[in-house]
Nucleic acid binder design. Structure first.
Lengths: 117, 117
DNA sequence: CTCTGATACAACCATTTGATTGTACGATAC
DNA sequence: GTATCGTACAATCAAATGGTTGTATCAGAG
């Protein structure tokens, strides 16, 4: 399994790519079925080039990949990146839990497991 | 339980707020311990006002809350929003699974459970 | 070969973002 | 009361974002 830590830049690009409704919609649709760039472009109330740019942003964030098929480029959603995003959020949850743990140990004893603060 | 659907705008703000390393760090730290605005500001290589703005972005995304304590404002991370973000990502995963399901039924029978497409 | 459909990409523009400095104000210390 | 600490907020600015149109390229149809 490729663990490959994401750089801060990568994480920035990942969340930023998700911070747009059109891009989220593209990800959803391409997770279900491969769709060509022009098919996607037809779906939105903006120019072809604008949709192309959104796809480019998603590609840089590795949320989608493109593969040539004839003269078309088929766009495919990449679930792995979604999962990496989930793992990032999981880490926040763990941090929060540590707060609770420390509170618990404070309540449990008078000299808890806080070594050398 | 408060389900309260997030609007597209809310989701945009949520992911955008997470798309910055300084802001992610603030969320992490304030999930573990309440910290004042000035304490946070001391930690980063930027002006007080810049940190204040980052906190404002996080507040608008409801990723942190502020509470007055004397003349300080204590910042506290809000795990619920993190969890809402996770749920949003879960939904992507479910969509992806539907693709697999459809593939499976295609492989299983010749006239599968695709009713009236 | 020529026409056309699908894509790529450059140039441009308005708006937003991320940072700065400076000013004002409320709460606490003295 | 006065000084000062912590915060808020306005004005400003460079860079990034999100959109546009126009031009070029590339693969397949006729």
């Amino acid at each position: 399994m490729v663990v490959s830590e994401l750089s801060e830049q990568d994480v920035n690009r990942l969340f930023r790519a998700l911070a747009d409704a059109t891009r989220r919609d593209i990800v959803r649709r391409t997770l279900v079925t491969d769709i060509s760039v022009s098919q996607l472009a037809d779906s939105y109330e903006m120019s072809f080039a604008a949709v192309q740019k959104h796809i480019a942003v998603l590609e840089e964030a590795h949320l989608v990949t493109k593969a040539a098929r004839g003269r078309e480029r088929m766009v495919r959603g990449n679930l792995d990146r979604i999962r990496q995003a989930q793992r990032l959020l999981d880490h926040f949850e763990e941090l929060w839990r540590s707060r609770i743990d420390r509170l618990d140990s404070l309540l449990a004893e008078d000299s808890p497991a806080t070594p050398d603060t």
